[in-house]
Design a protein around this nucleic acid. Structure first.
Lengths: 207, 207
DNA sequence: TTTTCATCTATACAGTGCTCAGATAATCCA
DNA sequence: TGGATTATCTGAGCACTGTATAGATGAAAA
């Protein structure tokens, strides 16, 4: 077995520094947001010198890219937790709720995932993770061929909702509503009443 | 006339430093994006010492808040340049095009406007500017009473489109489309074909 | 055991936002 | 007019950041 973890005396070689730094960064994002993150603080939390992360990630962007990839993974899980029923419109509403719910539950992760200055978009895994997370939408929208326009529209809609609520814009429209209320009560009503993508008819067939 | 501009010999008192710094910051945003901005660089461009901006704006956030307010103003102008016709659905499509077009034409401004860590959301002018810019949407949606749900949905949709295109996500869906092509050709087609808010029927009346 | 290699430390550099004492110029006031 | 007040800006300094580099340390390979 490869489990040569020292764990007793602090080894010179950390042994699992890469994973420890990723987790430290993710924790910082959770507790203090993106602006609370610094490469040095992550190194501090991992109990390692300030130059150590460079060996594993090259730069701060390298580390944050890994965190963003994990973020897309967890978003994908949140979306695929919505099990499809025989009502595709209701499924889409649930997916929308899951998307916004994820953004509000993990604002640091979510914001990082869409910060092109902090993640390395040239990393081939980034595009893959990004599209993989949206598989839930694609299948719920149903049509396997074509359908890109609809996917874009639905994604735009839920992404816009998530960003606006996260940025506190919703409170200008729905006076003083707290984010917790929003995902628990306001948003479900909004989706049921005024969200065209979740309507009973489904995507209209333009033949 | 108050135009006591020295302009010849560099005065100790700049005379118009506040406006000069705002313009310098806006220029940096235009040329090098948000990550290219620094308070010191703005001071440098205004030909003034690094501590000077503090007197007028207090902090970097203070300066960027002014730039963001200008951004909302220019967004409002871009939206109100869309003159209403007798087809409210077509008007909404034009507004959507104007919104996304603004984001792509002024990415630095647009991104700043929605960066809560860089602008002072407690500034009372911020909420005013934010809602004022959306007057175009509100009137186009028509119903003066109620309607907040529809405004939120439309805003979310266009805001999501703007962000996704700006972040290069659209190219994963529409393979390799350039941003210029997007607002010129792809988006109008998308809006006409797959955007439910711009449909002929208008907001359905749920009585 | 000896060599090689990956890993991590220590230090240094350039850049940042912010603070504060003091210099400078414009303005107000008698 | 002349003196005092006020707004404006400078210059230096502090704490912090990301990154680069030389060297120390331990593990693994030969």
């Amino acid at each position: 077995m490869k489990n040569t973890r020292p764990a007793a005396k602090a080894a010179y070689h950390h042994g699992n520094l890469k994973a420890a730094l990723i987790e430290a960064a993710d924790t910082i994002l959770r507790d203090h947001g993106i602006e609370g993150f610094s490469l040095r603080e992550a190194a501090r939390r991992a109990g390692v010198s300030i130059g150590a992360p460079a060996h594993h990630f090259g730069s701060a962007t390298g580390l944050l890219t890994e965190v963003a990839l994990l973020g897309y993974e967890s978003l994908g899980q949140a979306l695929s937790a919505v099990r499809p029923t025989d009502d595709p419109g209701a499924d889409l509403q649930q997916l929308a709720l899951a998307y916004v719910g994820f953004a509000l539950a993990h604002p640091g992760r979510f914001r990082l995932m869409f910060r092109p200055d902090l993640v390395n978009r040239d990393d081939p895994r980034y595009g893959l993770a990004s599209t993989a997370a949206l598989t839930g939408f694609a299948t719920a929208i149903g049509r396997r061929k074509g359908g890109m326009a609809e996917i874009f529209m639905v994604w735009s809609s839920v992404h816009g909702m998530a960003n606006l609520v996260l940025d506190g814009k919703a409170k200008y429209l729905f006076d003083g509503a707290l984010p917790e209320d929003f995902v628990a009560h306001i948003l479900p009503d909004l989706l049921a009443e005024a969200w065209p993508f979740g309507a009973r008819s489904g995507p209209q067939d333009r033949s």
